[in-house]
Structures are given as C-alpha cells and as structure tokens.
C-alpha cells in the first residue's frame, strides 16, 4: 500500500481486488447506523466485513428519507429514537474503514446542518472514502463535489432509469468512486426479478469511466447474481439486510450469514 491513498483510490481498488479475487461484482451491503441500536449496528458492520463485503455503505439516520421505502424509513426513525446522530453514526465508519472502504449515505439537510466543510472534514477524519447524497442532484452538487475532491473523497452520484441520455452523460463525467445505478423507478425496497437490468447497466456504463454499481431492489443472492450477469461492477444490498437487522434476535450472526450468501452468489 502506498503511503497516501485517497478515498476515491480506495474505492477503485476495492472494485479491482474484488474482480481479482474472482468475484463477478463487488458486494456493498448497506447498514443503517444506529439500527436496531448503536451497539448492534457496530456489530453488524463487523459482520459485514467478516461475511465478505468489499465495501460498506453506511446510512446516516434522517427524519425524512424521501428516497427510501417503508423498511429503511422505519429504521431511520428507530435509529433516531435511540438517540443516534451524525457523530455516533460515523464512529462506525472509523471502526471498519481500516478493512474495507466505507461510503457514507446521508441526506443533504444533515450535511448542511453541520456545514459542508466541517462535514467533509469529519468524513475524512473517520476514514470514510466517499459520500452518497440521495437528494442532491448534480445541479445542486458543485460545492459538495469541490469540498470532497479537495480531500480526496468520492462524491458518488446516482442515476435512475428515468435519467435521459444527455443527463446520464453529465452525471457520468462528474462521477467519483462509482456510479450508483438505481435499478428501478421507485424508492428503496425488495422487489421481484428485474428483466431490464442489462440495459440499465449498459446505459450507465456507456457514460462513465468509474465502476457501475446497481442498487434498489436487490434483495436475494439470485438477484445479486443476476446484476453481476447483467454486467454490474458492484451490487448494493440494502432493505433485505435492514429488515433482517430488525427481525433477528442476534442480528450480527444473522447478517454475517446473509452477507456470506450474497458474496457466494457473486462467486
């Protein structure tokens, strides 16, 4: 390892080494910080690493998560009810960032409340590699992009099935880390098989140089495998895991096994 590696470089390496290790796509499980409570969510992050995650997406709880379906929305509310806020949530990144790159998912108002520069400093200080802001389209993102670039952190943009070609190109050329490719028109949540995946991945790939990771609606190892077969460089699994975190008596054990099953499906 070189002495100074930026967050963007770490993300790129994670995708490359997943491939080098024979995995068809990198596995990026999502974790709601503070759900079901702070201690157990820390254990879940550890379980993700042990289960074979290549990267971790760490969700910061927010009161009004407009891009999320009912399962993650409820987890946001429950995490906030336990008193977990930004600093405690990011503490989880600090614990696992030495082993896998952590990409933080945070709604824009939490970032603005802290102040963009202070927020970016905080991300850097906990060792996070990148940031996903689901309610910050590229038109509103220049200041955040600049603040993260200056610190070597990746501002990961999202594209959706509704995003037209010319807009895909504009987003793709500004992408850092990877392109978060939303695979369904809708909010986060588990769904049936998605026959449109190959076209969705191909459309995204045509407009960017960074890896293409597919999320929203990937809830089974079979769907993860299908995303890899569709050409995705990475697979993001969210709602299925958050649901298990809420249901299981021992979430860490349950989630280690679940992540392992997803990892095995990706070869």
């Amino acid at each position: 390892m070189s002495a100074i590696v930026t967050g963007s470089e770490r993300i790129a390496e994670a995708f490359e080494s997943a491939r080098a290790n024979g995995r068809r796509a990198a596995l990026m499980p999502y974790l709601m910080a503070g759900y079901p409570d702070l201690e157990r969510s820390r254990a879940i992050a550890r379980a993700y690493v042990d289960g074979g995650a290549d990267l971790i997406e760490l969700g910061i709880p927010f009161s009004d998560p407009l891009a999320d379906g009912p399962v993650i929305h409820a987890a946001d509310v429950a995490a906030l009810a336990t008193g977990v806020r930004l600093d405690a949530a990011l503490g989880i990144a600090r614990e696992v960032a030495g082993e896998v790159p952590v990409v933080v998912m945070c709604y824009v108002n939490v970032i603005l409340a802290r102040g963009l520069e202070r927020f970016a400093d905080l991300l850097a200080s906990v060792g996070a590699s990148g940031l996903i802001v689901p309610d910050l389209p590229f038109e509103e993102a220049p200041a955040a992009l600049e603040a993260l670039d200056r610190r070597g952190l990746a501002l990961v943009p999202l594209v959706a099935p509704t995003t037209p070609e010319e807009r895909l190109a504009q987003i793709g050329e500004r992408a850092r880390g990877f392109l978060y490719t939303v695979s369904v028109t809708g909010t986060t949540g588990e769904r049936g098989a998605n026959a449109g995946l190959p076209e969705i991945v191909a459309r995204a790939r045509a407009h960017t140089d960074v890896p293409v990771a597919v999320g929203f609606g990937i809830g089974t190892p079979q769907q993860a495998s299908a995303a890899a077969a569709a050409g995705a460089d990475g697979v993001i699994v969210g709602t299925r895991l958050v649901r298990a975190a809420g249901d299981a008596a021992d979430p860490a054990t349950e989630l280690r096994a679940l992540v392992r099953a997803f990892a095995q499906a990706l070869g």
Binding site: L66, A67, P137, E140, V159, A160, T163, P164, I171
Partner: peptide
Amino acid sequence: GGQYVPETLMPA
C-alpha cells in the same frame, strides 16, 4: 429554493 430531490424525479 433549488431542487433537492432523488434523481428519479429530476427529469419529471
């Protein structure tokens, strides 16, 4: 003002 919405809605 501005447009702080998920990407899915931006084209709409």
